[in-house]
Design a protein around this nucleic acid. Structure first.
Lengths: 218, 218
DNA sequence: TGGTGCATTTCGCCC
DNA sequence: GGGCGAAGTGCACCA
């Protein structure tokens, strides 16, 4: 990892267009070719470009130019003055984060504990494919009718349309004509409950839940 | 900006739970208290915490512990061995990015050029408030009927539900009973076009467009 | 302060 | 490689 502290200005063109006026910033160039320009605020870089970029350098009279170009994007850094330039050796094969408490795990737990949706609910399938994408969970209600369950950590207003989209797509199949929808989440926003109610989608707030640390099966 | 390169392991608990096994990584502590842990891949930090955190340090026999705790979250870094620890002085008042080609600008341009939606379209209002959130643009079609326009740089499948939500909400008002919807974007995904078609929402692919560099009005 | 939606979102999974 | 949805998303804007 190379860190260059420099008085620099930046122009990016690609998915959008941005400019950075001249200032002293830190430029981080990583082993995989990713590059990012940081100021002393926030974790997010000001400018950046993904891995696989080749650095071209042009030395001018009073400054240095760095070009990172791909077919689609272009990042140009003007280095007016380099204050420091350091290389750090990090572990090459750092596998990265081990996550826990993800939506996938919540989904798995709910598949094992469908009674959390109410008495008489029965698990049928995870990731059930509809014409409009995969429903997190397919279950049946006490009457045996199919129910599309959208699982979320936090459910917001757009979860309602999402669930509705799945239910509608399933209803097109005569066998699933009386499908209903449920939003199951650890946290459901009040406005979301209101809209879901209007759309006849049931909201189930799940109990704060945690996975058995011994269980590695995701 | 302080950069510590160290053999470290990390535990985070808060919005989710993550662990990082021991490895040599770079830890960046910024002026505003934000902290991030990086490996030598990707621009995204492995672990991080936002501004306003206080670092507590505990020195143990064979390692050092760093705690960053808020009411909701907790980040604990175990420093097994510190390889380097450097301070860099960056500009304090770096104002950050100047953006161009944003959705807001596209919206402003379309407000000025409603004929891009088709002959006879007339601009009415930007950010028109409906019961389900603000529509980017309210226009009228050649027949004088209201049209809710959702502006996107890239329109994907969820833009359809979003537009539909606005249209439905507007239709509740008798005065807007015959409202229709348009998705206007630089890039509309094929599946999105298909679903929009099914939902009677018109798709308009806008020409590649760029703002007048002299125009500073957002 | 909370709700809502954009983002150069990034990232991962599945087809 | 494209489509799609999650993310410890971050962030700005608005009520």
């Amino acid at each position: 990892m190379r860190i260059v502290v420099a008085d620099c200005s930046v122009i990016y063109t690609g998915r959008g267009d941005t400019r950075l006026p001249r200032a002293v910033r830190a430029i981080i160039v990583k082993d995989d070719g990713s590059i990012s320009v940081h100021n002393d605020k926030s974790n997010k870089p000001l400018n950046y470009m993904g891995k696989g970029n080749e650095l071209s350098e042009v030395e001018l009279e009073d400054c240095k130019l760095w070009f990172f170009d791909t077919r689609q994007e272009s990042l140009r850094i003007t280095l007016h003055e380099v204050i420091s330039d350091t290389d750090f050796l990090l572990d090459r094969n750092d596998e990265g984060l081990i996550r826990d408490g993800t939506e996938k795990q919540l989904q798995a737990w709910l598949a094992e504990n469908p009674e959390a949706l109410g008495e008489g609910y029965t698990f049928v399938q995870r990731e059930y494919q509809t014409g409009a994408g995969a429903v997190d969970l397919l279950v049946t209600d006490p009457e045996g009718n199919p129910v599309a369950v959208e699982v979320k950590r936090v459910a917001m207003i757009n979860s309602v349309s999402q669930t509705q989209r799945y239910v509608e797509s399933m209803k097109e199949d005569p066998e699933f004509a009386n499908t209903t929808g449920i939003i199951a989440a650890l946290d459901i926003r009040p406005n979301t409950v209101k809209l879901a109610d209007k759309k006849k989608i049931r909201c189930v707030t799940l109990p704060t839940w945690w996975r058995d640390p011994a269980d590695t099966s995701m």
